[in-house]
C-alpha cells in the first residue's frame, strides 16, 4: 500500500478532509477515519486512535497534527508537509475568497439554511464511530470505567480533554512499568 501512495494522493485525500470538515475539531475525525483507515487503509483502527490521542495532547491544531503524522508515516517529512498543506489549503483559499469578494457571506440566508441541516448531522457523524472505536480500544468490563469517567469529567465537569489524555498516558506508563518485568518475554501483541 505504502509503495503506491503518491504525494498527489496524499494531498487529495487530506484536502478532501479539509474541504468537508464543517465545524472544526472533532468533525474531522469521522471523515479522516473513513478516508485514511477504512478506504485507504494507511493505518489500522488502533493506530488511528493512538495518533488521535497524541494529536490532542500536542500543541497546535488537531487535524493538522494528525495529517503531519500520517503524512510522515507514509512518505517521510515531505509527506507530512504535503498532508498538512492538503488540510490547510482549502481553508486558506476559501477564506481568502470570502475576505476579498464575498464579505456578505456572513449573513447569507442560504448558507444559514445549509448549516442548520449540517450541524445535527455533524454531531451524529462524531457520535457514530464511538461504538466501533470502543471495539478497537478493547473496552471490556474491567476498563469500562476509563471511557465513562473520561466522558463524565469532560462533559459534566468541564475538565479539558488534554488532562484526561495526560492522566491516561501517565497511568498507562506506570502500569507498564509495574508489569513490564513480568511480561518482558510476552510483549503485548
Amino acid at each position: 500500500m505504502t509503495e503506491q501512495t503518491t504525494y498527489l494522493q496524499l494531498f487529495t485525500i487530506f484536502s478532501r478532509v479539509g474541504l468537508f470538515t464543517l465545524g472544526g475539531g472533532y468533525a474531522m475525525v469521522p471523515l479522516m477515519e473513513k478516508e485514511v483507515v477504512t478506504d485507504k487503509q494507511w493505518l489500522g483502527h488502533e493506530e488511528f486512535m493512538d495518533i488521535l490521542a497524541v494529536a490532542q495532547a500536542t500543541p497546535g491544531l488537531f487535524a493538522l497534527n494528525m495529517a503531519s503524522h500520517i503524512g510522515n508515516k507514509l512518505k517521510g517529512v515531505r509527506g507530512g508537509i504535503v498532508a498538512s498543506m492538503g488540510v490547510a489549503l482549502p481553508s486558506i483559499i476559501i477564506i481568502l475568497l470570502i475576505a476579498m469578494f464575498f464579505h456578505a457571506f456572513k449573513g447569507n440566508i442560504y448558507i444559514e439554511k445549509i448549516f442548520r441541516g449540517v450541524r445535527p448531522a455533524v454531531v451524529a457523524l462524531i457520535a457514530a464511530p464511538c461504538f466501533s472505536m470502543a471495539k478497537s480500544a478493547r473496552i471490556n468490563r474491567r476498563n469500562l470505567w476509563i471511557p465513562v469517567v473520561s466522558c463524565l469529567l469532560i462533559a459534566a465537569f468541564g475538565v479539558s480533554p488534554i488532562w484526561i489524555i495526560l492522566a491516561a498516558g501517565v497511568g498507562g506508563f506506570i502500569y507498564g512499568r509495574i508489569t513490564s518485568h513480568h511480561n518482558e518475554e510476552h510483549p503485548i501483541r
Binding site: 488502533e46 490521542a53 455533524v122 471511557p147 511480561n183 501483541r189
Partner: peptide
C-alpha cells in the same frame, strides 16, 4: 511496539472513546 508505549496507549485508547463521546454530548 515497545512494551511501555503499548501500555500507555492501552489506557489512552479507552479514554479517547470517552473523549469523543463527550465531544458529541457537548455538541
Amino acid at each position: 511496539n515497545s512494551y511501555i508505549v503499548q501500555s500507555v496507549f492501552r489506557v489512552m485508547r479507552p479514554a479517547i472513546v470517552g473523549l469523543i463521546a463527550a465531544a458529541a454530548l457537548l455538541l
